[in-house]
Amino acid sequence: MTIAPRLGARDFAVAAVMNLLWGMNIIAVKMAVIEIPPMTAAFLRQTIVLAVCLSWLRIVPGRMKELLALGVLTGGAFFLVINLSMAVAENVSALAIAGQLGVPFSMLLAVIVFRERIHKYRIAGVALSIAGVAILVFDPAVVHELPGIALTVLGSAIWAVSSLIQRNLKGVPVMTMYAWIGLVGAAMLAPVALAFEPHGMRTIPAIPLSSFGWVAFSAIGSTLIGHGSMTWLLQRHPVALVTPLTLPSPVLSVLFASWFFETPLTPLMILGGIVALTGVAIITIRSARVREQRA
């Protein structure tokens, strides 16, 4: 496929849909864990991903260690931690801000593992991202959300490790990756949910269609369509053009969560969000330019 140097109207439309799906996903995940026990909801999400991607499931010679590790981290550990964070939190807008630490964590791991060199702009971005999340700790309105924030930070660290693994999976079809993520994730989460939420697992057939719909939205809308859109854009345009298009999604997550759940956005939350997202924007844009120069 030819790489186009400019973004057209169709590209912006795809990016808008992608950001809307990612932004609304925070509502879907929170509603899912309200109506379904969190581990059971995580198991159902991965089962849906596997069902949709099953025809793409295949052995990829020389890549199976990475695919299985990705399944363990992304399919199992990440969604277990994130669903638990959503279950214990009330103001999920704070979690949306804390979740942005995945970007600086990923970059710091790249420095440690791949010996990547970073300069003052990306160092400043890391500092701002961490400072923005740290501001939340001093907000009296968010103090009771600290367990959820801590779990979200842990989820961000897991996501960062997963992103490094994905860097070694170039050439593997996205749907094949998600087929393995769904398979390994469902296989991991099933015994955990059976052990800690036996009633939730037994009552899966009785889950109302509306509750099941929240899980399906996350699995199909956010995961498959959202990430599929990102892949489609990266196949058509330089990474330096595409990566900044993802920046609206965390802003939308915060705004959608505050609106839907009628939770307040305090001055400290707004300040922390602006600081954290500024740092993420710096890292994202500068890293995209660096990757483009090396390509």
Rank of each mutant, 00 (worst) to 15 (best):
V192M: 15
T203P: 00
R167M: 11
E197S: 06
I207A: 04
S249F: 01
T246S: 14
P244T: 07
T203Y: 07
H227M: 07
A219I: 12
M188P: 05
S249T: 08
M230Q: 15
S163L: 13
H199S: 15
E197K: 07
W259A: 14
L169Q: 04
S210G: 03
T266I: 03
E262H: 14
L271H: 06
S249Q: 06
F217A: 07
T266A: 03
T266Y: 03
F212K: 11
V174I: 11
T223D: 09
V174M: 14
L189P: 06
A160G: 12
I270W: 02
P267S: 06
V184F: 02
V251G: 00
T203Q: 09
Q235N: 13
T246G: 13
G182N: 01
V242I: 13
L255T: 03
F260T: 09
M188A: 04
L245C: 06
P264K: 03
I220Y: 02
P205T: 06
R236F: 02
V192N: 06
I270Y: 01
W214T: 10
A190K: 02
M269N: 00
F196C: 10
F196N: 11
A206S: 13
L271Q: 00
A193R: 08
A187N: 05
V161M: 12
T203L: 08
L169V: 11
T223Y: 15
S162W: 06
T223C: 10
L265W: 05
N168K: 15
V215H: 03
S229A: 14
L169S: 03
S218Y: 13
E197I: 04
L241R: 12
G226K: 09
